[in-house]
């Protein structure tokens, strides 16, 4: 579903990604862990074409992301992304937040878009907040709305960029439950996360990022049980 080969990315003199290889199969959940500034989040913004890359290739569902002539707006319909900051559109109600892109980008009618939005909002537990403005929601609710907003585009892949990092601790659980639900339904997901328990319980594979490369990747039992790389061991002993 996602093929990443030899991807290099730098911001000026700063090399953020230094040759990343990763393949994600359909229905697979890959968690990406690692220290701050290791390039985890940058990789996600490269996958949906928000950032250009300097070398290598990324393909999503057969589409070359950084090829000349690739319609990025078309690609982004297939790749949902949710950020650390939930980025609600403050001037729109919850329902309007979720129906905006399906109506503008997919060209759905209002009735079709609303039916789908209500389905997704029910899915994330916000069915009773349809006509509320985002400022009346808690951070966890806003983040779940952002997830519903991305899901309403019927993506084939979902990318999650530290979606619980900006939340109050007591709100983290509700968002992680939503992610677990999606994983159990077979959504293809890459989750950049600091929630080690989540990475261990939900993912099929865990990738440890260090200094712009994937230093170690494997099933959670390997990464958390018997990490081969000394940097992985060091990182895990620090976060526990």
């Amino acid at each position: 579903m996602i093929e990443i080969e030899g991807v290099r990315k730098s911001f000026g003199a700063l090399d953020v990604l230094r040759g990343v290889d990763l393949g994600v199969a359909k229905g697979e959940v890959v968690s990406v862990i690692g220290g701050s500034g290791s390039g985890k989040s940058t990789l996600l913004t490269c996958i949906n074409g928000l950032e250009p890359i300097q070398a290598g290739r990324i393909a999503v569902d057969g589409t070359e992301v950084h090829a000349r002539g690739t319609d990025l707006n078309r690609l982004r319909r297939k790749v949902g992304i949710v950020f650390q900051q939930w980025n609600a559109f403050p001037h729109l109600t919850v329902l309007e937040n979720v129906t905006l892109a399906p109506r503008k980008v997919l060209g759905l009618s209002r009735a079709e878009a609303e039916a789908e939005a209500i389905r997704q909002l029910t899915h994330v537990g916000l069915a009773d907040k349809l006509s509320v403005y985002p400022s009346r929601l808690s951070g966890g609710q806003q983040q779940r709305m952002a997830i519903a907003r991305a899901l309403a585009m019927q993506p084939s892949v979902m990318l999650f960029d530290e979606v619980t990092s900006a939340l109050d601790p007591q709100l983290v659980g509700e968002v992680l439950d939503t992610l677990k639900l999606l994983a159990s339904e077979g959504m293809t997901m890459i989750c950049v996360t600091h929630e080690m328990a989540f990475a261990r319980d939900v993912s099929h594979r865990v990738a440890f990022f260090h200094q712009g490369v994937i230093a170690e990747i494997g099933p959670p039992e390997q990464i958390f049980g018997a990490p081969a790389n000394p940097e992985t061991r060091k990182f895990l002993s620090n976060v526990r």
Partner: peptide
């Protein structure tokens, strides 16, 4: 970041301007 979220949903620059930037 808000504009980035809009673009990542597949909105074009124009749609982002019309639906997000101008109203906000």
């Amino acid at each position: 970041t808000t504009r980035r979220a809009a673009r990542s949903l597949g909105l074009t620059w124009r749609q982002d301007m019309a639906s997000i930037v101008f109203p906000m």
